[in-house]
Amino acid sequence: MNDSKNAPLIIKHLFLALSSVLFVFPFIWMILSSFKTSSEVLKGGFWPEKFHWENYREVLDILPLQTYLFNSFYTSLIITVYVLISSALFAYMLTFYKFKGKQFAFSVVMATYMIPGAVSYVPVYVILAKMGLLNTHFGYTISMSVSVFAIFYLKQSFHNVGFEIIEAAKIDGASDWKILWKIVFPMTRSSFVTLGLVTFIGNYNNYIWPALILNDGSKKLITNGIADYFINSSLGRDWSHIMVASTIATVPLLIVFLVLQKWFLSGVTDSGIKG
């Protein structure tokens, strides 16, 4: 009897284990390929015939990874902080304020989410050019500092905060700013961490838009730097070196996720999709 009850659980665990292996396999293959020769990588084998540790030294000698990593980290951090603050303010208004046209305003905001991001490239590029902000990290960060998804996500999370709590705080004389950061934020902290992590990783991995507006080598992000050196340059495609650079670029994100995974999973669970 117990065996029949445990069968679905065993099947579930086997499915999750298999799924985990499938998801992590490309990352493991990339790390192992970073120790191979370029010809070995093209052969598609899993384990290297010999570990070429010198691949890492060679890549660090020809590629300014420190500069690219710093550019990606600090621009992604600035964008994440701004997105969290601006989205929290807008979501707070849509959740706890009562005014005519509130639903219409929310509908307009959500309608813009249906527009493909590539559609905005040309007008935003022209605006940045007229402002003299092309090829600058400031121009890049301000062009990425609004997220409709972030507004929607925090709005759904804020619905978990009782409206009566907000009303009681207002009766006690608390300002909206104080209510947001002293009451709402602590109650939805996991959602902020989840959104921050998703926003940071998304901008860290961004490729097309920064490739269009950041041209100087000293200003490139890690994604564009790797592509320019090993794919678009005259150096040719040394696949073992590409794997080395990709591994170095990926490991910091993995560390960040492992540190924040508790908050991330809690935020995914707690945010809810309520109306």
Rank of each mutant, 00 (worst) to 15 (best):
V59W: 00
Y121H: 02
I142R: 06
S175M: 13
V21S: 15
R189K: 15
V119P: 03
S246E: 04
L14W: 12
T95P: 02
S234I: 07
G196Q: 03
S147M: 14
F106R: 03
F149M: 14
S120T: 15
L42H: 10
I273V: 13
I85H: 02
G217T: 07
V184F: 14
I201E: 02
S145Q: 11
L60E: 03
V259C: 06
N6C: 08
T141H: 08
L32V: 10
K220R: 10
K98R: 15
W47G: 08
W53Q: 00
D238L: 07
F149K: 05
T75P: 04
K50T: 09
S20V: 14
F73V: 10
A227K: 04
T112S: 12
A174C: 15
G101K: 02
N215D: 09
L212F: 05
L84V: 06
A245C: 06
F15D: 09
L195C: 10
N6A: 15
P210A: 04
A169I: 11
F257K: 01
H137Y: 10
P48D: 11
S233T: 11
Y82G: 14
E164Q: 12
K155N: 14
L69F: 07
D3W: 07
L253G: 05
R237P: 03
E167H: 15
H241L: 12
V41D: 04
S157C: 11
L214C: 00
I255H: 00
L265G: 01
I31T: 11
A245I: 02
L258D: 03
I248S: 00
S240N: 11
K102F: 06
K219Y: 03
N160H: 15
L94K: 00
A88G: 13
I226W: 01
K274Y: 07
F27R: 11
W177Q: 14
K219T: 04
S34P: 07
N205D: 10
K170G: 11
N71A: 07
Y121F: 15
Y125T: 07
K5P: 07
D61V: 01
F70I: 11
F90V: 09
S233N: 11
G196L: 01
P123G: 13
I10K: 06
K98C: 03
H241F: 05
V146I: 14
Y121A: 12
E49T: 08
H159Y: 15
S190D: 15
S38R: 00
K5R: 12
L65A: 08
K36V: 09
V198G: 02
E58L: 04
K12V: 10
A245R: 00
S33H: 10
Q156P: 09
V268E: 11
H159T: 13
S86A: 13
S147L: 08
Q261E: 09
M144T: 03
L60H: 01
W181I: 12
L22R: 12
Y229C: 01
I78G: 02
M93L: 11
L77G: 00
F185H: 12
I62A: 05
H52W: 01
F106E: 08
P123Q: 10
V126D: 07
F104K: 03
A7G: 12
F25I: 13
I179L: 08
V126E: 02
